[in-house]
């Protein structure tokens, strides 16, 4: 479904990704963990073409992600993205945020788009907030709207970039619950997270990124409980103890 093949990426002189390869099968949930600056966000941003890469290939259902190509917009609709800071459209109501893509990108009839948006908002637990504006919602509610907005495009896969790290601790649970439900329904997901318990429970596979390469990967329980690599052990000791 998503095939990342030895991608490299530099910002100026700084090599940020140095040969990252990762295959994500349909229905699989992969968590990316790693220290700050290790390149986790950059990997996600390359997958849906928000960032270019210098070498290698990224294929989504066998179509190459290339920001120079005209099909990049269509490709982006196949992969939903959820950002750390939500990035909802502040000038549109909750339901309009969710309808924006179906109506203006896919040109679906408003009625149909509205029905689907309501269904998705109900699913993320916001059936009473259709007409609220983003600034009237808590961070956790905003993030759930953002998830609904991405799902409204009926993507084949979802990318999450630290979706709960801008949230107050008591709001994290609701967002993780929504993500867990998605995973159970068979959504293909790549999740950058510091929520180790989420990774342990939900992820099929965990990849530990360090210095722009995947240092260790494997089944969630194995990587998180019995990491082989010293760097992984260090990292996990630090995040679990703080």
């Amino acid at each position: 479904m998503i095939a990342i093949n030895n991608i490299h990426k530099s910002f100026g002189d700084v090599a940020v990704l140095r040969g990252v390869s990762l295959d994500v099968a349909s229905g699989e949930v992969v968590c990316l963990i790693g220290p700050s600056g290790s390149g986790k966000s950059t990997v996600l941003r390359c997958i849906n073409g928000l960032e270019t890469y210098d070498h290698g290939d990224i294929l989504i259902n066998d179509a190459r992600v290339d920001t120079q190509q005209a099909d990049i917009h269509a490709l982006r609709t196949r992969v939903g993205m959820v950002f750390q800071r939500f990035n909802l459209f502040p000038h549109r109501s909750v339901i309009e945020n969710v309808m924006e893509g179906p109506v203006y990108v896919k040109h679906e009839p408003r009625q149909q788009a509205r029905a689907m948006a309501e269904e998705l908002l109900d699913k993320v637990g916001l059936n009473d907030k259709y007409d609220a504006y983003p600034n009237q919602l808590s961070g956790g509610q905003q993030q759930r709207v953002a998830i609904a907005r991405a799902l409204a495009m009926r993507p084949d896969a979802m990318l999450f970039d630290e979706p709960t790290s801008a949230l107050d601790p008591e709001l994290v649970g609701d967002v993780l619950t929504v993500m867990r439900t998605l995973a159970e329904e068979g959504m293909t997901m790549v999740v950058v997270t510091h929520e180790m318990s989420f990774a342990r429970e939900v992820a099929d596979r965990v990849c530990f990124l360090h210095g722009g390469t995947i240092v260790e990967e494997g089944p969630a329980k194995q990587v998180l409980s019995q990491p082989h690599h010293e760097r992984t052990q260090d990292f996990l000791r630090r995040v679990l103890n703080h």
């Binding site: 917009h73 982006r76 993205m81 950002f83 459209f89 893509g101 203006y104 990108v105 991405a150 495009m153």
Partner: peptide, 22 residues
């Protein structure tokens, strides 16, 4: 906020549409 433009791109919007709607 540049995040607005990224969010718009991530749902497949193109430049002129992003300008007009976002």
């Amino acid at each position: 906020d540049p995040g607005q433009i990224e969010a718009a791109k991530s749902i497949g919007m193109k430049g002129p549409l992003i300008m007009r709607r976002v």
